[in-house]
Amino acid sequence: MSERPPMVRAEGLGKGYGSGPTRLEVLDGLDLEVPAGQMLAVVGPSGVGKSTLLHLIGLLDRPDRGRLALDGLAADDLDGNRRAGLRSRLIGFVFQHHHLLDELDALDNVALPLRIAGVRAAGARDRAAELLDAVGLTGRASHFPDQLSGGEQQRVSVARALAMRPGLLLADEPTGNLDRDNAERLFELVIELHLKAGLTSIIVTHNEEMARRCDRIFRLAPRAELSSDVRTV
């Protein structure tokens, strides 16, 4: 069996915000490698740069320094269109706030990435309906985001992230806004889908218990040398 490249390889990744005296270096020389199929938990105090890291890996932002390769492909010098293409095909995102589009119902929200990728409306809706079934929201297809509970919103969001059958799932505190039960159920769902779809997943979480159920925990600290990287299994 030939060696598969790691799904994520970041070397010396650096990112800061602002300029002059208010300049804030958030990530500085971060190295991270995530093998295909792994489920990685990223934990760390608030404001340490977890979202920033996820945005860089998800090609939603550009690093100031360092190199990033996704699934063996160097992503550093790609133009906006190529980055958009990679986001579409390779990456699924679940945000802390569900970030569903208010004007679209659940079905159309899930179908959106497919429509963006050029799938025809009918086909996209069929697949979206399947996905809503898979996340346990059969029958809620024509509900709009504000007619769904927080847990349901996040389920729709998970379904949307998986619509294009991505290889890499990035979730930024997906359970952050949910109560214990709902958080637990959503996390179960993510694990189940991760295994079923053979995903590589990076999940930012505050919840130690959930983090321990992942394959590996990456603890982000304010100074790079304090960060730790632990395999749980």
Binding site: L60, N81, A84, R87, R89, F93, H99, P113, I116, R160
Partner: peptide, 14 residues
């Protein structure tokens, strides 16, 4: 936010 989300889902700048 919607625009950022659509970009995140693969919409090109164009």
């Amino acid at each position: 936010k919607d625009l950022a989300v659509m970009a995140g889902l693969g919409s090109t700048p164009g």
